[in-house]
Every structure is written in C-alpha cells, then in structure tokens.
C-alpha cells in the first residue's frame, strides 16, 4: 500500500499561543511542572533558600474542568466528561504573581507550582528554577521513552493469507 502524506489541514493543532518569548517560556515551565512528579516539584520548591515570603490570593482549591474532545477526533467539540483539577494563585512579597494548575486533588502541589511560577519571575531564582525544569523535562522524557520502547516491542505485522479455495 502506498502511504499518502497526512493532510496537514486535518491534523493541524489549535492556533499556537502568542509568540512572546516570555509567555512561551512561562507556559513551558508551567507545563513542565504540571507533567512532573509531585515529589520533583516539592523538592524544587524546598531547595529555594530562603523560603519565599508570599500571600495566597486564591485557593488552593479543587474544582472540575470539563474535558472536551472532538467528534471524529477533528470535528466539532463535545464534552467528554470532567477531570479534577487543583489550582492556586500566590503573590510574593516582592510583587510577582504565580499560578498553579494541576490535574488531581493535590492542593499542596498546585500551590508549589504557583510559588515556582512566581519565583521564576524573580532574577534571584529564575536560573535555579530553569535548571530544575530542565532536569524534570529530562526525567520525564526518559520515563516516556522507556514506556514507548516497551510499547514499540508490541508492534505487529499481520500477513494476509491467500484463501485456499482452489
């Protein structure tokens, strides 16, 4: 069988976020923190010295996010069910505001993400947190690769037999 090239229009992702590099790097950090193991996030926050001075301006709280899919995978949206999400917003004494969102009901983790988001905006901690984020990304990539290798070993090629009718 010849393989037609995928139709790019059919698989095009949703419009990319604003190209502002500051936003892109903040978005990437929040993604890293949401996909990291809870221990990694808490350890990163615990290593911040001195411990940050902050106030919590919203939460931490647990709520629901309606999970949307698309009909047929790429069509009109529909509501597939909900997921629990913990969130928190903090403000450092120096003024930076941080947001934490993470699936599940772990308010401590959401608050830690919010604090790291805020601290990453300070010159004092930006590089420490960026380095921790690189380590968390590497650990996640390794976990995903290990799993992908196990899955890849189950790749199957079925052979179609000729029917023995003659």
């Amino acid at each position: 069988m010849t393989r037609p090239a995928p139709d790019p229009a059919a698989t095009a992702p949703d419009p990319a976020p604003a190209p502002d590099p500051a936003i892109a790097s903040r978005q990437a950090l929040l993604r890293t923190l949401a996909l990291a193991e809870a221990d990694e996030v808490l350890a990163t926050l615990g290593a911040i010295d001195p411990a940050p001075d902050y106030t919590v301006v919203r939460g931490p709280e647990v709520g629901l996010v309606m999970v949307r899919g698309r009909i047929g995978g790429g069509g009109a949206p529909f509501n597939a069910g909900e997921a629990t999400v913990a969130r928190c917003t903090v403000k450092l004494a120096s003024g930076e505001v941080g947001f934490g969102h993470v699936m599940g009901r772990d308010e401590t983790r959401a608050k830690a993400i919010a604090l790291l988001d805020a601290l990453a905006q300070t010159a004092a901690h930006a590089e420490t947190i960026a380095a921790a984020a690189r380590a968390m990304d590497a650990a996640r990539t390794a976990r995903e690769a290990a799993r992908a290798a196990e899955v890849a070993a189950t790749r199957v090629d079925f052979f179609t037999m000729v029917r023995g009718e003659d």
Partner: peptide
C-alpha cells in the same frame, strides 16, 4: 489590571 484583580476578595 492583574494586581487590582487579585485584591479585594473576601
């Protein structure tokens, strides 16, 4: 806006 928005909750 964000700073104003954050204050003033219960």
């Amino acid at each position: 806006d964000l700073t104003t928005a954050l204050e003033g909750a219960f």
